[in-house]
Simulated assay, not measured.
Amino acid sequence: MSQNGYNPDPHRHPGLHVIALLEASKAMLALLAATGLEILGPQPLRDGVNALIRRFSLDPDHGTLPSLLNAISPDAVHLAAAAMIGYGLLHLVEAWGLWKAKAWASWLGCLTASIYLPFDIYAIVRHPGWASWTVLAINLIVVYVLARDLRKRRR
């Protein structure tokens, strides 16, 4: 334990471990989704968008979904999979850093969780419900725990 009472031992940070597991889960889901995109290709996405167009009786020639349908190509799928791999690897590195109680990981986690907050609030405005509120609450808790960790490190 240091003179200021802050113990950098990662086993003393159960909050960081919980957040590390959350980040690792997000990383694994992103990597799994990227793998699925590469294996399945664009056709399942095209089928899903077509099903949405039929389900909501949308104009198949105009609007956002038909535009999205036209944008789904093998190249777009490769680009989306690459972006998901980058996202997954970033969160995997963050999870490792949080598990090891690294200050840079707390900074990274605090920043990335804070970026989601305006989108979480927008989701509550557009789709109020327990799911939207739960996501906001989780992100606020993550920001609080990581900011608290950073404050403790400064003392």
Rank of each mutant, 00 (worst) to 15 (best):
M1D: 05
G5T: 02
Y6F: 15
N7C: 11
D9T: 04
D9L: 03
P10T: 00
R12N: 13
R12P: 00
P14S: 09
P14G: 01
H17V: 00
A20W: 00
A20T: 00
A20F: 00
L21G: 02
E23G: 01
E23S: 13
A24N: 01
S25T: 14
K26G: 15
L29M: 14
L29N: 10
A30M: 10
A33K: 05
G36H: 04
G36R: 07
L37W: 04
L37K: 04
E38C: 11
I39A: 11
L40V: 08
L40F: 13
P42Y: 06
Q43S: 10
Q43Y: 05
Q43I: 06
P44N: 07
D47R: 12
D47P: 01
A51W: 07
A51V: 05
L52H: 06
L52R: 10
L52S: 12
D59N: 15
L65K: 01
L65Y: 02
L65C: 02
P66D: 02
P66N: 05
P66L: 01
S67C: 06
S67M: 10
S67A: 14
L68Q: 07
L69H: 08
L69K: 03
N70Q: 14
N70E: 15
I72D: 03
S73H: 09
P74F: 06
D75A: 14
D75H: 09
A76H: 06
A76K: 02
V77K: 01
V77Q: 03
V77P: 03
H78W: 05
L79V: 11
L79G: 07
A81M: 05
A81R: 05
A82S: 12
A82D: 13
A83S: 13
A83P: 00
M84A: 12
G86A: 15
G88E: 07
L89M: 14
H91A: 06
H91I: 03
H91D: 10
H91G: 03
L92Y: 08
V93F: 11
E94R: 06
E94Q: 15
E94T: 14
A95D: 02
G97M: 06
K100P: 02
A101L: 01
A101Y: 04
K102I: 04
A103M: 11
W104Y: 08
W104R: 02
W107Q: 10
L108T: 12
G109C: 07
G109P: 08
C110V: 04
L111P: 01
L111F: 15
L111Q: 01
T112N: 10
A113Y: 02
A113W: 04
A113H: 04
S114C: 03
S114R: 06
S114F: 02
I115H: 05
I115M: 12
Y116H: 08
Y116P: 00
L117W: 09
F119T: 13
I121K: 03
V125M: 13
R126K: 15
P128T: 11
G129A: 05
G129L: 03
W130A: 15
S132Y: 08
S132R: 08
S132V: 03
W133I: 12
W133Y: 14
T134P: 02
T134M: 14
V135I: 15
L136F: 15
I138C: 05
I141A: 15
V142S: 04
V143Y: 05
V143R: 03
V143D: 03
L146W: 01
A147C: 07
R148M: 09
R148W: 13
D149F: 13
L150C: 08
R153F: 07
R154G: 09
R155M: 11
